[in-house]
Amino acid sequence: MNKIGFLISSLLVALALASSMLFVVDQRQFGVLFQLGQIKQVVTEPGLNFKLPPPFQNVSYIDKRLLTLESNDTEPTLTAEKQRVVIDWYVRWRISDPQAYIRNVGLNEAAGALQLNRVVRNSFQQEVNKRTLKELLNTQREQLMADVKREVLEAVRGA
């Protein structure tokens, strides 16, 4: 009877150890493997992967789908002629380099969205301040959007 109890408990310990050494990466996620707090590997392909037990290696997941950020700001922006305008915008964004994203922002996607929100809002304010209301509505709308996109991309890539 003692041999059966020992065998069952040994089997349970072996299963627990084996389950702590496996992780699954979904096709909608990046798997980031940390070894003693440092990024060791980024798993981009979905499937079953192996790692060392938790004190040595841990896994975190980051979404790699296309994310949407919408403006929640109702604060008016001043044009070149000091007219107040409220601009609604949205941005579609994706994490393309998980290591750089974690170094600059961390694992929280909300923190990345907050930083991106600040960059887009500031870019819009700078570009709207250079133009009149007529230019914003009629002649330079596409140019405004191109300038804002360029500034946001420069700020994000430079960060």
Rank of each mutant, 00 (worst) to 15 (best):
N108Q: 14
N122V: 04
D97H: 10
P46T: 03
V91T: 03
Q115Y: 05
V119L: 14
Q115W: 12
G37A: 09
V85K: 00
S60V: 05
S71A: 09
V43M: 13
V86M: 04
L69Q: 05
V120Q: 01
Y101F: 13
V86D: 01
E75D: 07
L66Y: 07
K64N: 14
V43C: 11
T44K: 14
N108C: 10
I62K: 09
W89F: 01
N122D: 15
Y90M: 06
Q38S: 11
L67P: 04
L78H: 05
G112K: 01
P98E: 02
I95V: 15
N104R: 15
W89Y: 00
P76K: 01
R118G: 12
V85F: 02
V105G: 01
Q57P: 07
E70H: 10
Q41F: 04
Y101C: 10
G47Q: 04
N108G: 10
W89E: 00
R121V: 07
W93K: 00
N58C: 12
V85L: 04
R118S: 15
A113P: 01
R65S: 14
N108K: 15
L107W: 06
Y101Q: 05
K82F: 05
R92G: 13
V120F: 02
Q115M: 10
L48A: 15
N122Y: 08
L116V: 03
E70R: 15
V42S: 15
W93G: 00
N122P: 04
F50I: 15
Y90D: 10
V42I: 15
L48R: 12
P53C: 09
R103A: 13
I39S: 01
Q57G: 11
A100Q: 14
A110F: 10
S71E: 04
V120R: 00
P46K: 05
Q41A: 09
K40T: 02
N117E: 06
P54M: 06
L36C: 09
V59E: 01
S71G: 11
R94N: 07
V43N: 05
Q57K: 07
E109T: 06
I87P: 01
V86E: 03
R118I: 11
L36D: 13
V86K: 10
K64Y: 05
L116M: 09
W89M: 00
Q38M: 08
P55K: 13
T77K: 12
R92N: 15
V105W: 01
Y61D: 03
V59A: 03
L52C: 10
V85D: 02
K64S: 06
R94L: 06
A113I: 03
Y101A: 06
Y90V: 01
S71F: 00
E70A: 14
P76L: 03
D63I: 04
N108S: 14
P54R: 08
N72R: 12
R103S: 13
I87V: 09
T79L: 01
I102Y: 00
N117W: 06
R65P: 08
P98L: 03
K82R: 12
R65F: 05
T44Q: 13
N108R: 14
L48Y: 13
Q38R: 13
Q99S: 10
N104D: 11
D63C: 07
G37R: 09
R121I: 07
Q35M: 08
